[in-house]
Design a protein around this nucleic acid. Structure first.
Lengths: 134, 134
DNA sequence: AAAAATATGTGATGAAATATAACATATCAT
DNA sequence: ATGATATGTTATATTTCATCACATATTTTT
């Protein structure tokens, strides 16, 4: 299961994320400043958000609308994270992936897409990037 | 099935598409100039590509690598389009959607996401934008 | 109540990403 | 050899985004 690669691939500039989440740039940056999201950066220092990042922002927005303040949200995320590490059968504490450069991530995805695409593409049917973000 | 909405939502700036497809900006713009892709535009006239657009570009790249020239690709796409309309049981030739503004598209998606997210988000599990791009 | 902290808006300034256009060039077909 | 195709390269303008500083409304704390 490498869906987590697809989901953590930096894809969206802040402008799109604003529209997707209905949050202001100020808010998004502020949340980042407080460690609630950690978007990647381009070489030129522009933020690039992944699906996971956008997800996270939607959760933050939700919680804020329910009156939770940033400190609270931080705790909630921390708790979830902890529960995760507890629950997770840490079988192979080897070299957890995760430390792939954005470049590598994209190459990986592209490889996947190309490969998978051959079927449809060869037979001239419509291609399918989107399908792979299940 | 409104996956086509998700797939046709303008999301990516050209820089990301370049990395996703390994095409140069020049190439991408040239293909657009010849009607092989039609990315949306921001208010400020910047191109915004959808999953479908990226898919299309990957197909174009594939065909070009196989020696097909742009005229050929155009024909191939046209043929596919025609076959589609032939095959398609055009039951309801009513007001085919498709003519939604980008704004509306995003609002729709956001609505979907928010709604669907409530389940997981409420129980504090990880959200799920990516899942909706199946 | 006054002061401090939180969360966000707004504006200035600079840099990065992208747009268009023009010209160069390599490859291919005629 | 000539012309068309496809792409690279460079110049210039515009848009989008980054950071920072200051303003402000709301809570929280003292």
């Amino acid at each position: 299961m490498n869906s987590h690669i697809r989901r953590s691939m930096p894809l969206f500039p802040i402008g799109i994320v604003m529209q997707l989440t209905d949050l202001s740039a100020r808010q998004i940056r502020y949340y980042e400043e407080h460690g609630l999201v950690s978007p990647a950066r381009t070489e030129g220092n522009r933020r690039l958000f992944s699906f996971n990042d956008v997800d996270r922002l939607l959760e933050i927005k939700d919680l804020i609308e329910q009156g939770v303040n940033l400190a609270g949200i931080k705790q909630i995320f921390a708790a979830r994270q902890q529960q995760h590490t507890e629950t997770t059968p840490s079988v192979a504490p080897k070299v957890m992936k995760q430390d792939l450069s954005e470049e590598e991530l994209r190459k990986l995805l592209r490889a996947e897409l190309m490969e998978a695409g051959r079927f449809n593409r060869a037979s001239l049917r419509q291609g399918d990037i989107a399908r792979f973000f299940h």
